[in-house]
């Protein structure tokens, strides 16, 4: 099983959704690991095998019941201030800039090792996959899909408004070779009665051919965030607090009619 969660913007909720899905797989007895090809992060975590991964992958690994490992986040971009970004490859800061192709090889190799050793790889994209000025240089979204084609799910955040436009527009901007890999979308952070969305969802399903896989209820998520400076529990927070929170999110989503089994079917496809 493998799947890639893409977001229509940063902060759309793909990290949490991927973590929920990791937790769902662990609950159903699937040996799963998280993966994010490259991560811009100020809050990283050392792994036992000498790697350095973002806080998101740490949470997801714990959710999956897997030992955090370097391969889960093979490329880490660490802002050094003054616009300088340091590239960290599997825990080791690179001397200078690393070529795009070399990075691609590193990412593909890490992914392959995870896929060979585990039953499921739950991947997370980075930012939006539809940055017109970046698509060809992008590693974590379209780049990964081109190197290792796999089904993808698009996560849109309704709290900001414009979620239908975001999902439709992202789908429209996907290059033709990648677009068929988009298998569904999720609407995140909805407040109120989801039936009011009905017509809009149907319209997007019609236009894109992607089914809506769920409407996630709005809830304050008590998990640390990649670039937040508030409430910063470090990697020492207990596993149980995070998994309990993910269980709560899964239950709340289920109460809203979300069935992770639909994502299982896509991830197997």
């Amino acid at each position: 099983m493998r799947i890639l969660f893409l977001g229509t913007a940063s902060g759309a909720g793909k990290t949490t959704l991927a973590a929920m899905y990791c937790r769902h797989l662990a609950r159903t007895g699937v040996d799963a690991v998280p993966f994010k090809a490259s991560n811009l992060s100020t809050r990283s975590h050392r792994t036992a095998d000498g790697g350095e991964i973002g806080i998101g992958q740490l949470i997801q690994a714990r959710a999956a019941g897997a030992e955090p490992a370097a391969d889960m986040n093979p490329v880490l971009l660490r802002p050094r201030g003054g616009g300088v970004v340091e590239t960290v490859v599997r825990g080791v800061p690179a001397d200078g800039p690393v070529g795009r192709e070399a990075l691609g090889d590193i990412v593909a190799a890490a992914y392959d090792r995870l896929a060979a050793a585990h039953e499921a790889v739950v991947c997370e994209g980075s930012g939006s996959p539809a940055e017109l000025n970046l698509i060809d240089r992008d590693l974590a979204n379209v780049g990964l899909l081109r190197m290792r084609p796999m089904p993808a799910v698009l996560v849109g955040d309704i709290e900001r408004g414009g979620v239908f436009a975001a999902v439709y527009g992202t789908w429209l901007l996907m290059p033709a070779d990648v677009r068929p890999l988009l298998k569904g979308f999720v609407i995140n952070r909805f407040r109120g009665d989801p039936s009011i969305l009905g017509d809009g969802i149907e319209r997007i399903e019609e236009l894109t051919g992607m089914p809506c896989l769920g409407v996630m209820p709005f809830t304050e998520v008590a998990l640390p965030e990649e670039d937040s400076c508030r409430d910063a529990p470090d990697g020492t927070a207990t596993d149980t607090a995070w998994t309990e929170e993910l269980d709560r999110l899964l239950d709340a989503a289920a109460a809203n009619g979300f069935d992770p089994g639909r994502i299982d079917a896509i991830a197997r496809g």
């Binding site: 902060g11 975001a166 429209l172």
Partner: peptide
């Protein structure tokens, strides 16, 4: 600021 702006623009115009 949050990324995805081209998709938001194209999608808004398209819908």
């Amino acid at each position: 600021e949050w990324g995805g702006s081209f998709a938001y623009a194209v999608g808004t115009v398209g819908l």
